[in-house]
Amino acid sequence: MYDKKDPRSTLASSASAKPKTGLIAEEQLGLFYQEEPQINDETGKTWFLRGHNFVLAYTEAQPGATLRRTGQADEYVAIFPTAGAAIEADTSARVAPLSLAMIPPGDSAITLPEGGPVYRLFTTRSQDLVDLCPNAHAYDTPRTHVPDFAPWPEPPEGLTLRTYSYDVPAEDGRFGRIFRCTTFMVNMLYPYDGPRDPSKMSPHHHDDFEQFSILIEGEYDHHLRWPWTTDMADWREDKTHHVGAPSALVIPPPVIHTSRACGAGTNKLIDVFCPPREDFSAKPGWVLNAADYPVDQDA
Rank of each mutant, 00 (worst) to 15 (best):
P169W: 00
E42L: 13
S126H: 12
R174N: 08
D238C: 09
Y293C: 03
S165G: 02
L224R: 04
P254M: 08
N289W: 04
P284K: 08
I103C: 06
D148T: 12
T111H: 14
P117M: 07
K20R: 11
S259T: 10
I178E: 04
F184A: 01
A136C: 12
E210H: 04
E75F: 02
A73D: 07
K239G: 03
P151C: 11
P252R: 04
F48P: 01
T10G: 00
Y166M: 08
N289C: 07
Y2N: 10
E278M: 04
P37Q: 15
E27G: 04
T10Y: 06
D140H: 10
P147S: 12
T70Y: 12
Y58I: 07
K4M: 14
Q72H: 13
L98D: 12
K4I: 15
Y2C: 06
A138I: 09
G263H: 05
F280R: 03
E88Q: 04
V272K: 03
L49M: 01
I216H: 07
I251D: 01
S13E: 11
R225G: 04
I256P: 01
T182Y: 00
T163R: 05
A170M: 11
I214L: 15
V295P: 03
G44Y: 08
G71M: 12
N53L: 02
F175W: 15
D292R: 07
P275R: 01
E114A: 15
D6Q: 14
S199F: 13
L215A: 10
A89S: 12
R125H: 08
F54V: 02
N40F: 15
A248I: 07
D207V: 15
P284H: 07
T183C: 12
G115A: 14
F184P: 00
I24L: 03
L49T: 00
F212I: 02
P275Y: 00
E88P: 01
G44C: 12
R125F: 03
P147H: 12
R68H: 12
E154A: 10
F175I: 09
K283P: 01
Y2S: 06
E210Y: 02
T111W: 14
A150I: 10
L31N: 13
D207Y: 04
D148I: 08
I178R: 03
E42N: 15
E60R: 11
L121R: 04
E27W: 01
M185H: 04
V146M: 08
L249A: 05
A25F: 03
N53H: 06
K268C: 08
R177N: 09
A93I: 12
K200H: 13
G263I: 01
I256Q: 03
